[in-house]
């Protein structure tokens, strides 16, 4: 990176670290911070949308739909989220490949599931076996993002369902008295008012989501945990210009500080939003 980095053995401590932290693999580590942020940026709105659909479905008067919504909403209650993560990543992958298989190779006669194997025709592989490594990585990342969205959508559905029920009944009765249809009163009265009730739950959910991002590592994504482990393990002088001992402790300390700062900043920001939104509301916390 810097011009003085050509001779790593002859550097002073400061310059050594300046060079060390700008090696190609370290740039990968910084990119993977971006991965975490992209994950958050996609997952938060998508899971909010899933949550909204889930909450709407649970309120539905059509029995199968409300059962579906309620199952989804209560999905996260009794089971650790990590189980869902591990499950959905494989299940989604197989579902996609199976569907593509049915479309692409209709005259394939062998069974797909043969004992311990899941075999689809080569044209139905997602991504195709011949595609470059980057495509595989991006595909893996989006399966992981979708998985996160499903699981956190269920959390959000829980929060939003509670928030919809927390809107005072009198508001809805007034809407009916004005002759609004259920659809109108839902969109014009209930939805605008529910957010303030949902906010504490949603801000808590955001914190949980931030703290769940390291689990990408378990799903096989090369995220910050992966790179911290890779870079921190001891390097010998034969293969690496910047030999060092086992520094994984320091790398993980760095990650800890990163997450602490992230959650702390989010907490302060969310507190401000809550204060602003509850202005003029008639609750204990609101500045009426």
């Amino acid at each position: 990176m810097f011009s003085f980095c050509t001779e790593p053995d002859a550097l002073g401590a400061f310059q050594w670290f300046a060079c060390y932290f700008t090696t190609g693999v370290h740039l990968n580590l910084y990119w993977s911070l971006g991965t975490v942020l992209i994950l958050l940026a996609i997952t938060a709105p998508v899971s909010l949308a899933f949550g909204f659909l889930g909450a709407m479905a649970s309120r539905s008067r059509i029995l199968p739909l409300s059962l579906l919504g309620k199952t989804y909403t209560s999905m996260v209650r009794g089971v650790p989220d990590i189980v869902f993560f591990l499950f959905f990543v494989i299940a989604l992958d197989q579902a996609l490949e199976w569907t593509k298989h049915q479309i692409v190779c209709p005259d394939w006669t062998e069974p797909i599931r043969q004992g311990a194997n899941f075999l689809v025709c080569p044209e139905a592989k997602i991504p195709l076996g011949a595609s470059p490594q980057v495509v595989h990585e991006i595909y893996g990342f989006f399966v992981a993002v979708f998985t996160f969205s499903i699981v956190f959508g269920a959390f959000a559905a829980n929060v939003l369902y509670g928030a919809m029920r927390a809107v005072p009944r009198a508001q809805m009765e007034t809407a009916e008295a004005y002759g609004m249809t259920p659809r109108q009163s839902f969109w014009r009265i209930l939805v605008p008012q529910m957010w303030i009730y949902a906010l504490p739950g949603l801000s808590n959910l955001w914190m949980i989501l931030i703290k769940a991002t390291p689990l990408l590592f378990i799903l096989g994504i090369e995220d910050i945990v992966y790179w911290a482990r890779e870079l921190g393990s001891s390097k010998s002088a034969r293969f690496f210009d910047y030999p060092h001992g086992d520094w994984r402790l320091w790398y993980f300390l760095g990650l800890l500080v990163f997450y602490l700062a992230f959650t702390r900043v989010s907490e302060i920001a969310l507190d401000r939003i809550t204060k602003r939104l509850s202005h003029g509301q008639n609750f204990a916390g609101g500045g009426a």
Partner: peptide, 22 residues
């Protein structure tokens, strides 16, 4: 409370493991 509630448990496990290892 801030440190343990503000950081992911997963990272805490890793960090603790490397501390115990050293």
């Amino acid at each position: 409370i801030l440190v343990f509630r503000g950081s992911p448990l997963f990272i805490q496990f890793f960090l603790a493991y490397f501390i115990f290892l050293s």
